[in-house]
Each structure stands twice: as structure tokens, then as C-alpha cells.
Design a protein around this nucleic acid. Structure first.
Length: 857
RNA sequence: GGGCGCGUAGCUCAGCGGUAGAGCACUACGUUGACAUCGUAGUGGUCACAGGUUCGAUCCCUGUCGCGCCCA
């Protein structure tokens, strides 16, 4: 019945063959005709086109694939797409770096065309990697966030949010990256520790005297609009209500009380500039302070000539103010800081300075220290929806559960609405224009849904001429589009904003979102925001959070440390199944060190599985039975031996346990269970115990058949249990040993069914007795340093300290297999034994044995 | 400064109220007719530290220390 297997497994050949056949058979295709209730919909992370592939990609994507493969085999109609997040600033930076160009040095069209070129190559690299690691994605569902359809859906999202009042455009203080010259969102900010100085500067006081403030940013002096002092500060009483006069510019500013002015820090008196940090913004809002912006989009000082030129920005000495302004205008922030100190020192107005380390908010991508500028930007309203967002977050099942805390904390601590406009090029344009028609100047004109996607720079809103509109020049941030990944798959964002409403009904919300923990505050959060604002519901039922792949020493892999292991090198050395094995032993949420040891264990497991299967295939060479299920084959009286029924009972426990664990995303525990069964129960014990009957050395024909049927069931079931983890080898073995049984082991519904398994408490007892006695005999032989093959003249089994019920009958039922396995001519029961005995580990039995006389040389 | 997680055998990690577990590594023995990429057995831990709750704590609580991440 069985096919033939090569002596050695060649993973390269097997991987190529399997990939070819899976593609030909469409093994992983989603069935669009099946009802939604059968679906398992995965909202796969579209990897950022970053130019290089790392172990993190393999690690987290394979974790997802383990679940995807299980769910498919367990009968779900799995929707498992892959996307590429190719739009936005990350791609622009990649393009600028690899092609050594600047976006600003060429036309917008030219730059965008080059971006498209670069992402093609990068995406092909990803496809190749994902295929070789064996991801069971449905390639027909591939998407790009820059594709026309994605643009259309992303613009639909913007239109829907705008019409619902969740999207607004306003001039407001915005985090600004002076290197990339674009606005940023809160999530794109990282703090960098920078050595700096805390300067103490003397302000004048109206009516005479001086007040010393402390600041790390003296260059913003020109933008000063107030001083703040803690109400409990000893000097507060004498200062509050008076005006201070800024040095150099001689601008009178009020001295105000506020608890956020830390009396322990510096002099305890601080200047508020529009804008130095987020506290300045809060003070500016609450105290309705004037707006004095002295930085431009490149981070240079500008606009200082306005000091003293108007009533809301007065100076007591305009000549002095303009002299200082002339020295500072056009300098970048750092140079302006040095110059300001120089000017102040010359006037003897610096009262002191201390070296401090300060945390500077910087751009995650460019690394530049951020400024706060007042620019027109598009914002998604989130600050007024914190409670709703927390509630939606709690409706999603988080794996592991504590990851939800990260989401909750992020939502609770939001300080900005979500800024989604970027002053860049390669991205989805806003489908908006501003009217120049007399009477409605500045009115927002939006595109008709039917016309999407639009490029406002070249297209026009219906009913308007080019002269009558001002196009919105910005593009959306990458996250504004990738945050609708569930909807990019389902092809609609909300009623009235649909590309394919039937598909949307089938695919939204999704079942599961896999992603890494560091992007909970970005990707998970934004996706929840959008889903909530569009349709009032959570985008997924479950979210599974993966950790990171660390280097062997548990440090972060990084090029600078030189500890980067590339996916290709591992796949080349070990093959995909072994690399997957390493991933499959890691749990959700935890960072995992790449381990050569674990890879070796995986290698050994695949070798063992190959050899065990080959061995069983030998035992089945003459097998002409027609197995149905373990349960039925026992019922039919085919599988009769206690040891056979015992291993099937153990198998049934593994089938049930592994399924339950996979359902909870505990694939590592499931694998462990399967592996232990395979190695310890099946290989170490069952194969040895059944050998005699399998070879027909002992027992009758019925017992031989019983062993064959059992071997067949165990192997056929185990291969399916291993299939999610080791897709290539199990497929190769399955097709080799059970040809024609299923086009692919990975087919939908091919997971072993718990109801088909056989279990018997009495068979389990008999098997345990057998294994216990076998282990004791092995130990006895090992203690005497003889081969386990050494024959015994006889073995006597008596009740131990805690014998099982019906011990005698139990032992009688297994003497045949036991005698064959321990190599005893005679195994007999004794009600009690005189002299020295060997107990089994569980004290169920006590043994005596006699070695056979050595064979004559 | 706040939040979250982690600290268990040499290493990687499970366990989480009732006599410490696995794999790797190490040691000894064994060529048994699938596999020496094997088998059998063994060495190895005051479960970070200090208090508390409990009949009993690796497990619960509090604090301390160390590590990582996230956020101020």
C-alpha cells in the first residue's frame, strides 16, 4: 500500500516540490463562496518596505502561519492575505538612501516613479522569503498600500471621517521634523538623551530689579511670552502680577503662577515660549498667551523683525531688539543657541549654567530634534473619544492578555489628536481642494466617491475649474492607510464607501490580527480608531502579539553590533521546517533568542521523524488493510492488543490536547505535547513493544494485523499533528506513505478529529504497566552495563508496594509484547517473590530477572 | 519619575499554594534488525533577596535589588 521513501531527506528538493504542488493545487486559497461563519480571517501585517529582511520577519510571520495552518486543517475557511506597506516616508527614505538622491532635487512625478521602482524589487525579496519559510498565504489576496484600490479605500476613509466630523484641518502647534520637513504624529516621536546645559538668564523687572530664569533653550528667548513660577515658590509673592522684561529684546512679559513650574528645577522660574515643548502649548492655551513663532520649517530662526513692530509683540527698546534679531536671523537652532549665549554674556546677563542631560523629543525616522511649529494640518479626533477607544480595546481578546495594558496606557495618555497629513510626496493624497470662489473662499471641496482615487494636483472637484480651487498638496501618513488594512482586504470602509460590499460583509471584522508589541501604540491603536470611527466596532476578534527575535546573547540584533543572522543563511543551513521549529518553540509576547541549540533539536526531530516513518513504512510493506478510524478499527475487532490500544489512547489525548492549545494560540505547548508523544511514547516505547508482532516474530496473524493497523493510524495522525509546524517534511512523508489520501496534508479539514480517536482506561493501565516494567528491566540491564539486547532466561513480575487493581490479569495481557521487547524466554507472574527484587518506578510491581547463559563463542 | 514584563539546573525555558520539571550541555554505560543526527541511566537547583499571609509559598501580598521594553 505504501509508497517509497528515500534514505535521506533533502529539504531543498522537498521544499521546491511542495511549493510547486501547493501552488498548482491552490492549497491555501480562500473560498469566497463559503459562509462567513466558517471563516478565519487574518489581518496580516503588511511589512514596511525597508530594504532588508531580518529574523524578526521570519519569527513573527511564522508564528502566525502556525495558527493559520492549524485553523485551516481544523476546518476553517482561512483568509490569509499578504500586503506590502510601500507608501509613505519610510519608502522615501529608503529611496533617497539607496539611490543617493533627494526628493527635493527633482519633480514630484519623477520622484514618485523612482519610489515605485524601488518597492518592486523590495517586495519581490519579501515574496521569496515568505514563500521559502512556508507561509500558507493566499497570494491571490496580495495588496499594496500604494495601489489604486488602496488609495481609493484610504481616500474613502478620509472622506467618511470628514463627513462624520472626525477629520478636521486646522492651524495648530504641531510636532515638526525640520530634516524631513514634515509634521509628525505623537507615535513617531522618540526621546533621545542629549548632553546639554541649563542656563540661568537674567530678565529685567518693570519697576527695577531682575528675575533669573532657567532654560535649556535660550535661543527661543525671542519667542518668550510669559514667565511661570510655582505659587509656593518663596519668590512668588514678590513677582506675581508684575511684568518681566526679556533680555536682548526688551519685551515685557507677564509673570504668572502655575504648579507645572517645578520649584526644584533650575531657579524654579521658567520662561514660556511659543513653542518650546508641550507644556508651553498648554500654558499658551490656558492663559491665552500670544503666538510668537520664530522658527521656520528648516529649523532656522526667522520673523524676529516683528518684535516691537506691533502692539501684541511690543518692545521697550526696538533698536536693541532689532540688533539682536539681525545677529540671530537665519541661524539654525544650535548656532542660534550659542549666539544667544554669546550676546547675553557680552551684556553680563548669564547668571550661571549647569551641565544636564535632557530628553529631547526627536523624529523616529530622521533622528532630528523636533520643533513645534504652527502649520495647517489634518487631524483625526481621538482626544474626545478615549473612553470609547478603551471600551473597544477591551472587546478584543488580547494574547497574551497583559498586552492590552499597553494599549490602555497609550490611550489614557494621549495628548494630541492624530495628525495624519505629511508634507511629502510618495503617499495617498488627500481628496480635498480649497475653494477660491468669491463668497466661499477656503471652503473644503471634496471628491465624489465615484471619482476616487483622485490626485488633487491634477484632478478637479466636480463643477469647478482649475482657477477656482487650491489643491491640498499634502499626502497622508503611512499609518493613515495601513490602519485600514482590514478594510483594504474587505474592500469597503463604511456604508456608502464601498468597492465591494459583499466581500466586506464576508471579511469584516477580521478574526485575528497578529503583530509585534512595539507597534501597539501605532498600528493596533490606529486600526482600532479607524474601525471604530467608520463602523463603531472593533476591527478584529483576537489580537496576538509577538515578541522580537534577539541575538544568541539576548541582545538586540543590530548591524552595528555585527550580530545579525540573516534568514537566508539559516534557511540554507537548516531548511525551512527546522527554522519554523525554532519559531514554534517560542511563545506569543515573549522576545526569544535565536538559539543554535534549539535549531539542532529541530534538525534532530526532523531526522527522527523521517527515520521513524521509514521504519513504519517497512513494517507496512505487505499491509493490505483498509483502515478507517482508530475508534472503528477497535470496534471492528481489528485492533485487539492492549499495547496497541494503549498507544491509541495516548494518541487520543494528544489530538484533543493539541487542538485545544492551538485554539488558544499556544502552539508551542501543542508542539511540545505532540513531540513528547512522538519521541517518548511512540518511538521509545511503542515501536519497541510492537516490533515483535510487527515483524511477525511473535503472536498470531490477528496480532500482527493489530500492530500494523495501529502503526498506520499513529503515523498517519502524527504527520497531520506535525503538519502546521513542519509543513514540508510532513507533506513529503504523507504523500510518500499515503499516496492519494489527500491532495495535500494541509487541506482544509484534515486535522485529526477527536471523535475518531480511541481511548480505553483499561488499555491505558495495561500500557503503563508494560512501560513501567520495561523501564525497570532496562535500568537493571543498564546498571549491569550490558546491552539492552542481552537476553533473559526469565522475568518474574510480582505486585509491588502499590499494585494496580487486577495486576495479575494486566500483566498476563502484555506478556507476549513484554517478553519480545526485553528479550526474555519466559515472563511469568508471581504472587510474591523471595529475595532481592527490582521495583518499577511507580512501585506498582516488583521484578526478578535472570540473564540467559552467554552464547558460546 | 510612571507603567508593563522578566529574574527557576551551566544554557534556553515550562510550572505557579502541598515532596522542584523539560530540552540542550555534561558524565557513565550500551553498536538493539528506523535512527550513534541513536538508546539507557546519571550528575546538577536554599525557584534574585528580605519581610508578610497560610497548617504549608517557587507560586499570593509588600518592599528591595538586577535586566528588558514602553511612556513621561
Amino acid at each position: 500500500m505504501s509508497g517509497t521513501l528515500a534514505d535521506k531527506y533533502d529539504f531543498k528538493v522537498a521544499e521546491a516540490d511542495c511549493q510547486e504542488s501547493w501552488k498548482r493545487l491552490n492549497t491555501y486559497a480562500w473560498d469566497a463562496t463559503a459562509p462567513k461563519s466558517e471563516s478565519y480571517i487574518i489581518d496580516t501585517p503588511p511589512p514596511t518596505v525597508s530594504g532588508y529582511l531580518h529574523m524578526g520577519h521570519i519569527y513573527s510571520y511564522t508564528q502566525t502561519d502556525l495558527t493559520a495552518r492549524y485553523m485551516r486543517m481544523a476546518g476553517r475557511n482561512v483568509f490569509y492575505p499578504i500586503g506590502f506597506d510601500d507608501n509613505g516616508l519610510p519608502t522615501e527614505r529608503l529611496v533617497e538612501a539607496t539611490r543617493k538622491i533627494r526628493a527635493t532635487d527633482m519633480s514630484r512625478e519623477e520622484f514618485v516613479a523612482i519610489c515605485h521602482e524601488v518597492v518592486q524589487q523590495s517586495e519581490e525579496d519579501f515574496r521569496k522569503l515568505f514563500r521559502s519559510i512556508g507561509l500558507s498565504v493566499d497570494w491571490a489576496q496580495e495588496y499594496q498600500t500604494i495601489s489604486p484600490t488602496s488609495m481609493k479605500l484610504s481616500q474613502m476613509s478620509a472622506l467618511d471621517l470628514f463627513k462624520k466630523g472626525h477629520l478636521y484641518r486646522t492651524w495648530q502647534p504641531t510636532l515638526w521634523d525640520p530634516v524631513d520637513r514634515t509634521a509628525l504624529a505623537q507615535a513617531e516621536v522618540v526621546d533621545k538623551e542629549v548632553a546639554s546645559s541649563m542656563w540661568e538668564l537674567a530678565f529685567g523687572l518693570e519697576g527695577g530689579g531682575e528675575v533669573v530664569i532657567a532654560t535649556t533653550r535660550p535661543e527661543l528667548l525671542g519667542a518668550c511670552c510669559a514667565l511661570f513660577i510655582h505659587p509656593d515658590h518663596p519668590k512668588a509673592a514678590g513677582l506675581l502680577g508684575r511684568n518681566a522684561i526679556s533680555p536682548l529684546f526688551q519685551v515685557p512679559v507677564p509673570i504668572l503662577a502655575d504648579e507645572r513650574a517645578d520649584p526644584e528645577k533650575g531657579t524654579g522660574i521658567v520662561m514660556c515660549c511659543t513653542f518650546g515643548d508641550t507644556t508651553d502649548i498648554e500654558w499658551w492655551r490656558e492663559h491665552k498667551l500670544p503666538t510668537r513663532v520664530i522658527l521656520d520649517k528648516n529649523g532656522r530662526l526667522t520673523g524676529l523683525e516683528r518684535i516691537g513692530a506691533s502692539a501684541d509683540w511690543p518692545s521697550l527698546d526696538q533698536d536693541s531688539a532689532q540688533a539682536a534679531a539681525a545677529e540671530l536671523t537665519g541661524l539654525k537652532v544650535n548656532a542660534a543657541r550659542a549666539k544667544t549665549i554669546e550676546l547675553l554674556t557680552a551684556r553680563d546677563l548669564v547668571r550661571g549654567s549647569t551641565a544636564v542631560n535632557r530628553m529631547v523629543p526627536s523624529a523616529e525616522r530622521s533622528g532630528a530634534p523636533l520643533e513645534i511649529l504652527v502649520t495647517p494640518q489634518w487631524f483625526v479626533r481621538v482626544l474626545d473619544k478615549k473612553d470609547d477607544l478603551l471600551k473597544i480595546g477591551s472587546e478584543i481578546a488580547w494574547y497574551p492578555p497583559y498586552m492590552q495594558v499597553r494599549y490602555d496606557r497609550w490611550v489614557e495618555n494621549l495628548k494630541w489628536d492624530w495628525c495624519i497629513s505629511r508634507q511629502r510626496y510618495f503617499g495617498v493624497p488627500f481628496p480635498f481642494w480649497y475653494s477660491k470662489r468669491p463668497g466661499e473662499e477656503g471652503k473644503v471641496l471634496f471628491a465624489d466617491v465615484a471619482d476616487l482615487p483622485v490626485n488633487p494636483l491634477t484632478d478637479l472637484p466636480r463643477g469647478y475649474t482649475a482657477d477656482e480651487v487650491e489643491p491640498d498638496p499634502d499626502v497622508m501618513d503611512t499609518w493613515a492607510t495601513s490602519s485600514v488594512s482590514p478594510q483594504l482586504n474587505s474592500r469597503a470602509v463604511a456604508p456608502g464607501f464601498e468597492v465591494d460590499s459583499e466581500r466586506h460583509d464576508k471579511l469584516f471584522p477580521a478574526t485575528m490580527r497578529p503583530q509585534a508589541h512595539e507597534i501597539i501604540r501605532t498600528w493596533a491603536f490606529y486600526t482600532i480608531v479607524k474601525s471604530y470611527l467608520h463602523e463603531g466596532k472593533a476591527p478584529w476578534k483576537d489580537i496576538t502579539i509577538s515578541g522580537w527575535c534577539l541575538a544568541q546573547d539576548r541582545s538586540k540584533m543590530s548591524k552595528s553590533k555585527g550580530n545579525v543572522v540573516t534568514p537566508d543563511s539559516l534557511l540554507e543551513r537548516y531548511g525551512a521546517d527546522v527554522v519554523r521549529y525554532w519559531t514554534a518553540t517560542s511563545r506569543l509576547g515573549l522576545d526569544t533568542a535565536l538559539s543554535e541549540d534549539v535549531l539542532k533539536v529541530g534538525k534532530r526531530l526532523t531526522t527522527k521523524l523521517w527515520n521513524a516513518t521509514r521504519f513504519v513504512s517497512m513494517q507496512l510493506k505487505d499491509f493490505d488493510g483498509a483502515p478507517s478510524t482508530p475508534k472503528e478499527d477497535v470496534a471492528k475487532g481489528i485492533i485487539v492488543c492492549p499495547v496497541d490500544q494503549w498507544i491509541l489512547t495516548k494518541l487520543s489525548e494528544v489530538v484533543r490536547g493539541a487542538g485545544e492549545l492551538f485554539e488558544k494560540y499556544e502552539y508551542a505547548d501543542a508542539l511540545h505535547l505532540i513531540e513528547r508523544f512522538f519521541w517518548n511514547d511512540f518511538c521509545d516505547n511503542y515501536l519497541e513493544l510492537s516490533k515483535g508482532r510487527a515483524y511477525s516474530d511473535v503472536g498470531n496473524e490477528a496480532e500482527h494485523r493489530s500492530a500494523q493497523y495501529t502503526l498506520w493510524h499513529c503515523l498517519e495522525t502524527m504527520l497531520r499533528l506535525f503538519a502546521p509546524t513542519l509543513p514540508y517534511m510532513t507533506e513529503t512523508l504523507y504523500q510518500g506513505l499515503f499516496p492519494g489520501r489527500s491532495p495535500s496534508i494541509h487541506n482544509r479539514g484534515n486535522w485529526p478529529k477527536a471523535d475518531d480517536q480511541f481511548a480505553s482506561a483499561s488499555a491505558e493501565l495495561a500500557g503503563e504497566a508494560c512501560v513501567g516494567i520495561l523501564a525497570a528491566v532496562r535500568k537493571a540491564k543498564s546498571d549491569r552495563q550490558v546491552s539492552l539486547k542481552t537476553p533473559l532466561a526469565w522475568l518474574r513480575v510480582a505486585p509491588g508496594a502499590t499494585p494496580p487493581d487486577g495486576a495479575r490479569e494486566l500483566v498476563a495481557s502484555i506478556t507476549g509484547d513484554l517478553a519480545a521487547t526485553v528479550g526474555a524466554s519466559l515472563v511469568e507472574w508471581a504472587d510474591s517473590l523471595e529475595g532481592e527484587t527490582v521495583p518499577t518506578q511507580d512501585s506498582a510491581f516488583a521484578l526478578q530477572l535472570e540473564f540467559a547463559a552467554p552464547a558460546q563463542e
